[in-house]
Design a protein around this nucleic acid. Structure first.
Ligand SMILES: [Mn+2]
Ligand SMILES: [Mn+2]
Ligand SMILES: [Zn+2]
Ligand SMILES: [Zn+2]
Lengths: 154, 154
DNA sequence: TATTAAACGAGAATGATTCGCTTTTAGATT
DNA sequence: AATCTAAAAGCGAATCATTCTCGTTTAATA
């Protein structure tokens, strides 16, 4: 995803191409970790110190409205954003608040087929998403490498 | 679910039985529509005009911590609450913000089995919930009753 | 009934997000 | 290339759901 691609995407949606919009979209793509507005602002300000907070929020709204990004809901008071549009689910870590993508087309088909067969009365499904809540396991300590380490205190 | 039951539930969790706690839990059960804190406050104040907003939030936290109710996440800035503890999913109406319960043990088994067979690397699942987003269909107009209606304009 | 830690009430504070208004700018038009 | 103008950006104030603080009340226990 190059800046040219981003300009292309904005243009396709009939959005004016502005440095702020490019920066926001680029930030979400680069950060690639379902960043909050604050994360995005911090990231952008490294290169463009004068971007206004309100502008970032307005850009985020515009990008969501034009389906260039998606909102990711959380338990917390902060909204998070996702530039990956391909259908996928999310692993929510209760310990760290990290959100990890979970791609599984097999599962998507399972669900789609399930609901094709079992319609929900009076409800028209637009999207089905799994909230998979839990904890990331810290990988099992396998025999740690022996190393010469200086003792903490002489 | 009587008030005696509610007192029982609070007591089992070692929570002090207070009129405010009873009122909040009763409100969520009676409203039965994933109410927001504001909905709950409005409901309660009809009978107890002096309940403090802060108290309601504190009670909600205590009830969640003690697993007597659950939080329901939404797109919006308001948290909503659920007194139904039995595993179920939610239908989110994008048009009206209504959230309807979707019970389906068949589907629950499908998912549980699926993830029993297909572990997610390095992730320990605590809970899986479906966010089913869409719109409630207004029931199809079936042959409308013929009626004598006055014409709109003479 | 007295004791006391826990819970409550009232209002201030917080903080993510939005608003209102002025200034700037992208992109079209001369 | 210079001009035009609706759209976008900037900025400070406002909003509002939720949390905090602290003085007062109360449920539970002895
Ligand atoms: Mn907030
Ligand atoms: Mn908020
Ligand atoms: Zn994602
Ligand atoms: Zn529910």
């Amino acid at each position: 995803m190059t800046i040219t691609d981003i300009r292309q995407q904005l243009s396709e949606k009939g959005l004016k191409i502005t440095p702020q919009r490019i920066a926001v979209l680029e930030a979400i793509i680069k950060l690639n970790n379902h960043p909050s507005a604050e994360n995005i602002i911090d990231y952008i300000r490294k290169n463009y110190p004068n971007v206004s907070t309100a502008t970032v929020y307005k850009v985020l709204d515009a990008l969501v409205d034009n389906e260039l990004i998606k909102r990711v809901k959380t338990d917390k008071d902060v909204m998070r954003y996702d530039a990956i549009l391909h259908a996928h689910h999310h692993l929510y870590c209760t310990k760290t608040d990290k959100i990890k993508d979970y791609f599984n087309d097999d599962l998507n088909h399972l669900l789609t087929n399930y609901f094709k067969k079992h319609r929900i009365l009076d409800f028209e499904i637009a999207d089905i998403k799994l909230q998979i809540v839990g904890k990331f396991k810290t990988p099992k300590k396998t025999a740690p490498k022996k190393r010469n380490i200086l003792p903490k205190k002489a």
